[in-house]
Amino acid sequence: MISLSTLSPDDKHALRRAIRRARMSLPPAYRQAAAQAVARHARRFLARGRRIGGYLAAGSELDLEPLMSAALFRGAALFLPKIPERGRRLWFSKLGAADRWSHHPRYGIAEYHGPVLRAHKLDVLFVPLLGVDEEGYRLGQGGGFYDATLAFRHRQQHRRRPLLVGVAYDCQRVPRVPREPWDVQLDYLVTESGLHRFHRQPIKEE
């Protein structure tokens, strides 16, 4: 876990830099072993028939491919994020056997073109993150896509689907991340060391 003793508690830029340095310093063999460990720890979510939201790792993010392969092997339906033409509310596209891949013209990420649905239709959503704190609040890359996508959790605070499972290396955990009113709490975090559950906090009314 990264210490915040030398950082301002509200300095997102400095915290992002510190976490990126820690994550990038992990050796390749460690990364491969961590990805396999995360797939094992997350098996409880990968039941047949479940609609599972995943993502394709970018840069130094933890590779989710072993977990997604396990989901397909167990008979789950796998959905990958697709950036909308307007706004920041993601669609999730069902992965199929056909080769229907393209790269987003602006962001360069690979997207699969299959039937789409919104996040609230998923059973489990594995969420990428840069940092995560002890209460399950995440620090993202700053694009705001997942904030917009999961905003419905504030309007429906008793909703239990999808389960939000953050994915990270242990080195990305911090005591507390800077929080904004729109931040959504994760239900679980899965890292190379195991599965960590968070107790959902009540949403404060403005």
Rank of each mutant, 00 (worst) to 15 (best):
D147H: 14
K121T: 00
R88T: 12
E111M: 01
R161E: 06
R86V: 14
R106F: 07
G49E: 03
A70S: 15
A98S: 13
D63G: 11
L67R: 01
G96W: 08
E85T: 03
G59V: 02
R106G: 08
E65Q: 14
L150F: 09
P81T: 00
P81C: 05
P84A: 13
I83V: 13
V124K: 12
R106D: 11
R50Q: 10
G114M: 03
Y146S: 07
P66G: 13
R86E: 11
L67V: 00
Q157S: 15
D147M: 11
R50D: 05
L56G: 04
V165L: 05
D123P: 04
Y112K: 06
F73C: 02
L56M: 09
G131Y: 09
K121H: 12
W91C: 11
L72I: 05
A57E: 06
R118K: 07
S93G: 12
D123N: 14
R155M: 00
H154E: 08
W101C: 13
A57F: 02
A119P: 07
F126T: 04
K121D: 10
F92R: 07
P81L: 06
P81M: 05
G143I: 03
G59K: 03
F92I: 05
I83W: 02
E111K: 02
G54V: 01
F79G: 00
R88L: 12
V116P: 01
